[in-house]
Computed example of a mutant assay.
Amino acid sequence: MNDIDRPLTPDELGHRLTEVFDLVGPLYRRAVRKVEQGEAVEGISVGVRAVLDLLRQSDPMTVPQMGRVLALSRQFVQRMVNDAAAQGWVEAIPNPAHQRSSLIRITDEGRATITAILGREHHLNRQVGGDLTDAELRATVRVLREMLKALDHVDLD
């Protein structure tokens, strides 16, 4: 096994992951700003975008379920759902499993809105350079998932 392929010691890993966190913060903030620039077109905040994208990919969910998946507080998700509902992008439907916690479902208008946003984002993402390979991106996703898993215990509410 060559040196680059050996697992890092906990101390080495800690230093290298700090480099990743140092990049993820500015990357996230710039991505948020880019989405917010598109808000004038679709009238959508980053939080509502996250809710719509999650519901686009899943069956209807409760607000607490969405909060857990998105790693956001229930209260914040509820505000985003309320904003999306006011635009006609989501709707509450009865939840057979829990009378007091409705399921939230994306509407056709919401699906069209998030599809347009994702198309614009895909266009921007195509402009990323660096001759990146599938293996590099799979490794990046693996690293970020492990970092996220290490923070699963953090209370969001």
Rank of each mutant, 00 (worst) to 15 (best):
E42D: 06
V41F: 06
V32S: 10
A135I: 14
K149N: 10
D3Q: 10
V154R: 06
V63T: 01
M147F: 04
R56F: 12
A135N: 11
L156H: 04
P64K: 03
A85Q: 14
D131H: 13
I117W: 08
Q37A: 12
L148V: 07
R16H: 13
R29W: 10
V90N: 06
H15M: 11
H153G: 12
G25N: 02
R16W: 09
Q57N: 10
S58I: 07
D83V: 04
L144M: 08
D134A: 14
F21T: 05
T115E: 09
Q78P: 00
D155A: 06
E12V: 02
R105K: 14
A50Q: 11
M1S: 07
Q127L: 05
L148A: 10
P96L: 00
L132M: 12
L54A: 13
E36D: 14
T107Y: 03
R105A: 14
S102Y: 06
E39R: 15
R138D: 15
Q127R: 06
E39A: 11
I114C: 01
L72P: 00
Q65Y: 02
G25K: 03
V143C: 13
E19S: 10
H122S: 01
E136H: 12
R68M: 11
L151V: 04
L23A: 08
G130W: 11
G25R: 05
I4L: 14
S58T: 15
L54C: 09
Q75R: 14
D131W: 05
M1A: 07
V41R: 11
P64Q: 03
E136Q: 15
L156R: 07
F21E: 04
A92R: 13
P7W: 02
R29I: 04
Q87Y: 08
L70G: 00
L148C: 07
A50C: 06
R29F: 09
L148R: 11
E146F: 14
D22G: 06
H122Q: 04
D83K: 09
I106H: 01
T113F: 02
A135L: 15
L13E: 15
R79S: 00
L103F: 08
V128C: 02
H98M: 08
T62F: 00
L13K: 15
D59V: 11
A139Q: 14
H15A: 11
P60A: 09
P26I: 03
A71H: 11
R33T: 15
E12I: 03
L54G: 03
P7Q: 03
S58D: 11
